[in-house]
Amino acid sequence: MRKIDCNAISEAVARLVIEANVFLPDDVLKALERGEREEESAVGKDIFRQIIKNNEIAASEGMPVCQDTGMAVIFVEIGNEVYIEGDLEKAINDGVRMGYRDGCLRKSIVNDPIKRVNTGDNTPAVIHYRFVRADHLKITVAPKGGGSENMSLVKMLKPADGKEGVRRLVLETVRAAGANPCPPIIVGIGLGGNFEKAALLAKEALLRPLDDRNPDPDIAAFEESLLEDINKLGIGPQGLGGRITALACKINTYPCHIASLPVGININCHVARHKSIEL
């Protein structure tokens, strides 16, 4: 049993929320550079240049890439060989509070969906726990903006709808979203499981490296053909028209009920942030 102190967890979370909001992952930066080369629309190309310039300014000035520094979505992998001393959930929220304060990140959380009073410290986070056979605690911080989250959905299709039904739903969702989720977007899709599992699969799909390949060859081919179709919609960077609407399309799957074909679609803006640490 390895003991992990809650202060170390809070400090790690605080550092991760700041770093995630200021420095985009390399795979995202590379995808943006590629987009700038491949975009045919002159306006679209210029949007890519502004986005790339923005990311450089954010990194050099130590300021957030986007003013919407998101709701802190946190994935925690807890090894069975680890003993956490103290209150893990409190430690994570303390870290969020510290990071959003010290990093000059925006506080975007209201206490109640109807009363809507800002909590003032960006807590609480949304936390997903998973227990694994390991002697580490892995924390992934994925701040998620409201604009792209608002364009996401879960829909329970019929098994008869099949792959074509999934394709239509994805294309309809991306088309309806248009400029709202700040294209170029990343489309995370959860196929299978049940109602809540589909949403979680979609969110987890957004954490995959943009240049990875799905180990299931059929799903890998589906990801590629979907991305191709999405990029024929013409929405383009910022919805002003162009070739590159999405930088990537990722599908995570899970077995499901004989009656169901659950589909979760989680859209991410081009500010695709996530950062991990193992304690």
């Binding site: 986005i51 923005n54 300021m63 890439v65 986007c66 003013q67 910022q238 803006c269």
Partner: peptide, 24 residues
């Protein structure tokens, strides 16, 4: 340009809260 928030902030030379400070 959505998401170009650091770049855009450079064009803002003065800022002052004039109403609803309780809204953060």
């Amino acid at each position: 340009v959505g998401g170009a928030a650091a770049l855009i902030s450079r064009s803002i030379k003065k800022a002052e809260i004039i109403a609803y400070p309780d809204l953060g």
